[in-house]
């Protein structure tokens, strides 16, 4: 559905994305993990048109979308959320969701209906008249999701929607994401919360210093020495392996 072909991007000599290729299959929940500064958000920004890659290309639904501006990519059905959520703070939750809903619905009433529908899906029906700026972190994350959903996307790129939530709140949002997948949406997550990655994701790519270093099911990934190395630092993977051998 989404195919990234040898994407590279550097900022002032610093390689943020290095020759990344991957293909997101339709109807799945997949994820992108990696330590801080690995270039995950940069990759999302490139895929959604906020940044143009220095080289490589992006294909969405069989169409080359490299270099298209974000709003056109969004129109094609690829929408991203922001890690640092961006609510329209001085407007109500309803007005926030309306911005997304208007993408495919010109009429005010039509868009408002869509906004109500989405709000119900993410559990914000009771908060429609609250100011977005007055929401809690969990509320803002839901709102970020709701705005994106209101554009009626085919592929949803979620950038750390669970960071900053407590375990109960995470437990609440996981079924929401499952429901979205069941309704036919493809979802790609960036996530730090491993509990969520394990529960949700069917396939995972691991990014370190801009490069893909591993891919596979989350269970496979969790055992991959290169991944452990990237996350936990030098030499640890070798030690764990040695310990495992000694135990065996």
């Amino acid at each position: 559905m989404l195919e990234l072909r040898s994407l590279s991007k550097s900022f002032g000599g610093l390689l943020a994305t290095a020759d990344v290729s991957l293909a997101v299959p339709e109807g799945r929940i997949v994820s992108l993990i990696g330590p801080n500064g690995a270039g995950k958000t940069t990759l999302f920004a490139i895929a959604s048109g906020f940044l143009t890659p220095d080289s490589g290309s992006i294909h969405f639904l069989g169409q080359d979308v490299t270099g298209l501006p974000p709003h056109e990519i969004c129109r094609l059905g690829l929408v991203r959320t922001f890690q640092v959520v961006k609510p329209f703070a001085e407007q109500s939750v309803r007005e926030n969701i309306l911005v997304g809903a208007h993408l495919r619905r010109a009429g005010h009433r039509d868009a408002a209906e869509k906004a109500d529908e989405v709000a119900e899906l993410v559990g914000m029906t009771g908060r429609m008249d609250d100011l977005a700026g007055s929401l809690t972190i969990a509320g803002r994350k839901r709102l970020e999701l709701a705005k994106a959903l209101a554009t009626e996307p085919k592929l949803l790129l979620l950038d750390e929607v669970m960071a900053g939530l407590n375990p109960t709140e995470i437990e609440e949002i996981i079924p929401v994401i499952h429901r979205l997948r069941d309704s036919g949406l493809t979802i790609m997550l960036i996530e730090h919360v491993m509990q969520a990655v394990m529960k949700l994701s069917e396939y995972t790519w691991v990014l370190n210093q801009g490069r893909l270093i591993a891919e596979g099911s989350p269970q496979q990934i969790a055992r991959d020495p290169a991944v452990i190395e990237a996350y936990l630092g030098h030499g640890l993977a070798a030690r764990i392996e040695a310990e495992n051998r000694a135990n065996a």
């Binding site: 906020f50 974000p70 709003h71 929408v79 922001f82 961006k86 007005e95 911005v99 994106a148 554009t151």
Partner: peptide, 17 residues
């Protein structure tokens, strides 16, 4: 609605099409 969204946050607006 679009105009107000642009006033409040251009990037967020672009992301929503």
């Amino acid at each position: 609605v679009y105009l107000i969204a642009i006033r409040d946050d251009e990037d967020a607006a672009r992301a929503l099409g």
